[in-house]
């Protein structure tokens, strides 16, 4: 293919009040207000919202959106497997695995000889519940930055799961309440426990059952799961109960006598954060890339330019610039656009 003159991406990709907008193809990526055409990276509520007309996403994310928002979440779904290409206006779009949760994708947009990759949320380590991240070389990489500080280095998953199993062995008289996000983290923790040989039933807060069923229906083996009913919460000594993080400290969890309170999150790396949440057993398990993964990915995608979104932008921008990569925090890009 002859090399064409590359365009500057900010002429056709910009931040608007609805979210990131691709003018070349007239669509939005993860808009937070209803739009005509949306490309959705994954099913978490801050990325997938209800009310769009046309949605392009992976089959996995479409299943999650339908389950969360009902049939009317979008008027039409275009379900694209990883690698399939779509054309909108002067842009072509394909989705690449992001390794974040089931169905999660990066958005690869090509226009006028320029390739932009929007990472969405991602991680680089192995996850039994979703496809692994695929680095796509590009001209501009739009990256997340949730854990973009060098203090965030997630230890190996196996070691964290062993911490939970060791605590269970040491405290057979205490129920272990593990705070997990309902979508992605819950299923990953279960899969990791199964991989470590834990075959007892795992008990679930009501907010987790639908999504665990959904994962199981997608062929992800989670083993025996039991909903925690409304009746007495006294019979769970020595068992693992998963619940949303907010339930660790509400009326629901108070029913369990003498629980060990655990939480599976990348934030648990910082002691005082864990302490503020009243967590006794912090498990550093994240579905986001840690510092080493974020910086390695910048090199893997070989992009000369990087835009950094939501999180600790300053540090990643600084890192990129000191490694010869042009970098900006995306919010600033947006503000400049408005001023121009």
């Amino acid at each position: 293919m002859p090399r064409t003159e590359k365009t500057s991406p900010e002429t056709w990709l910009r931040v608007t009040p609805q979210g990131l907008y691709c003018a070349a193809g007239d669509f939005y990526i993860d808009p937070h207000r209803p739009v005509e055409r949306a490309v959705i990276t994954h099913g978490h509520a801050d990325h997938a919202r209800a009310g769009h007309d046309a949605v392009l996403t992976t089959p996995g994310t479409a299943v999650i959106m339908r389950s969360r928002f009902g049939a009317g979440a979008a008027k039409t779904y275009d379900e694209a497997a990883y690698g399939e290409t779509r054309s909108f206006g002067d842009a072509t779009v394909r989705l690449a695995p992001a390794g974040h949760i089931l169905g999660s994708a990066q958005v690869v947009i090509e226009h006028a000889g320029t390739r932009v990759v929007i990472s969405g949320d991602y991680k680089r380590r192995r996850d039994l519940t979703c496809d692994g991240f695929e680095p796509v070389p590009c001209d501009l990489f739009v990256t997340e930055a949730t854990f973009a500080l060098p203090v965030f280095r997630h230890p190996p998953d196996g070691a964290e799961i062993r911490k939970l199993l060791q605590s269970l062995a040491r405290n057979p008289d205490r129920v272990h309440l593990v705070g997990v996000y309902a979508l992605g983290k819950a299923q990953r923790v279960i899969a990791l426990l199964r991989e470590a040989g834990y075959d007892r039933p795992i008990h679930l807060h009501g907010a987790l059952t639908a999504l665990c069923d959904l994962y199981a229906a997608q062929g992800i083996a989670l083993g025996p799961l039991r909903p925690v009913g409304r009746e007495s919460k006294k019979g769970f000594a020595g068992e693992i109960v998963l619940c949303p993080p907010s339930s660790l400290r509400d009326r629901w969890s108070r029913g369990f006598p003498n629980p060990v309170t655990a939480m599976a999150s990348g934030w648990m790396r910082v002691r005082q954060r864990a302490r503020l949440r009243g967590v006794e057993l912090p498990l550093i398990l994240s579905d986001h890339a840690d510092w080493d993964e974020l910086t390695a990915t910048l090199h893997d995608v070989q992009a000369p330019r990087v835009w950094v979104t939501h999180g600790r932008e300053d540090a990643l921008v600084h890192y990129a610039r000191s490694h010869g990569i042009e970098a900006e925090a995306l919010s600033l890009v947006g503000r400049e656009e408005e001023g121009a």
Binding site: V151, A315, H318, Y319
Partner: peptide
């Protein structure tokens, strides 16, 4: 050992 800017940003975040 560590880029001082990254260290300061981290210290600012962690606080200890």
């Amino acid at each position: 050992r560590v880029d001082p800017v990254l260290f300061r940003l981290s210290y600012d975040y962690v606080g200890d």
